[in-house]
């Protein structure tokens, strides 16, 4: 299903406005690939006809959410990039657990959590390596824009392809059970994660102060102003000694000067710059 220049521009604007997704010129094929099946299933003769209908009332039409869902890249995997989770296990969690021991409270946020693999990876690390957190108040908040992926995340049910992506076999055997051709995450791991719908590009709901925030491979899809706005708002909901994880190809440099980076092995993490206590 071919796409006119005007209609590509319309989808570009819609994706940017609704979800801060940047569709570069040249991505027409992606719009055709992802929206073509929706147009066909909805009985439209062409993709242009479908987009014309969408154009009539983009905010309220029932196709709006489907379009944003389809244009969102939901690439994710368990232990994605591996090294950040090694830094989390070896350095970040031991330090933060020591700091938070008096209150026995730990808050973690997995932003743009997609189908939940990142949040469940964190939950498995906590279960596997930090048994002393058993009597702590531990919360992993996982948010995403899409109700479709959140529904799948809440189910905690993954295909063989999905568990093959990064999940070590011993953890698969320990924390999942086979249900027909799929794998279901164990309830005691699932209950650690609270999935909520949230659009990073819109005003944020009230969030708790987090000790650790994962917002990885999200900002690469956003323009510079959206990146600045997100980093500023993250500073407001991160504990003063809290840690921010970004994607491998992402950085705060040249976007927001109020961060410092710390390197642990092959992982880089970020903390908010602290004011100098004895400054003259």
């Amino acid at each position: 299903m071919a796409l006119s220049e005007n209609n590509f521009k319309f989808i570009q604007d819609l994706a940017r406005e609704a979800a801060a997704i940047v569709l570069e010129p040249g991505k027409e094929y992606l719009v055709e690939t992802r929206l073509g099946p929706i147009a066909t299933q909805s009985g439209f003769k062409s993709l242009d006809d479908f987009i014309d209908q969408l154009r009539q009332n983009p905010k309220t039409t029932l196709f709006h959410d489907q379009v944003i869902d389809a244009m969102t890249t939901n690439e994710t995997s368990f232990f994605r990039d591996f090294h950040p989770f090694e830094a989390l296990r070896q350095h970040i969690l031991p330090r933060i657990i020591e700091q938070r021991a008096p209150l026995k409270r730990l808050n973690i946020w997995s932003a743009a959590s997609s189908t939940g693999q990142e949040a469940y990876t964190i939950a498995m690390i906590l279960r596997e390596h930090f048994p002393k957190l058993g009597d702590w108040n531990v919360s992993i908040v996982a948010t995403d824009l899409s109700p479709t992926v959140l529904a799948q995340a809440k189910l905690g049910l993954y295909s063989q392809l999905e568990v093959n992506r990064g999940l070590p076999a011993p953890l698969l055997m320990k924390y999942f059970t086979k249900v027909d051709a799929k794998w279901a995450i164990r309830d005691d791991v699932k209950k650690l994660v609270d999935f909520r719908q949230m659009n990073l590009a819109k005003p944020w709901p009230i969030l708790p102060l987090f000790d650790i925030i994962f917002i990885r491979n999200v900002m690469i899809y956003f323009d510079v102003d959206s990146k600045k706005s997100i980093l500023r708002r993250i500073r407001q909901c991160l504990q003063p000694q809290g840690t921010l994880f970004l994607g491998t190809a992402e950085t705060t440099m040249n976007i927001d000067p109020d961060w410092v980076n710390l390197v642990y092995g092959k992982a880089t993490v970020y903390q908010v710059k602290q004011p100098l206590l004895n400054a003259a």
């Binding site: 040249g26 991505k27 094929y29």
Partner: peptide, 30 residues
């Protein structure tokens, strides 16, 4: 996806199909 999107063959397969031939080969080996 390769010619217009500038992706390498494996990334193009993943973007369009949500799976690449290596992953499918893994399923066969399993």
């Amino acid at each position: 996806a390769q010619t217009e999107g500038g992706l390498d063959p494996l990334a193009a397969e993943s973007e369009i199909l949500s799976v690449h031939h290596g992953e499918l080969g893994g399923i066969i080996a399993q």
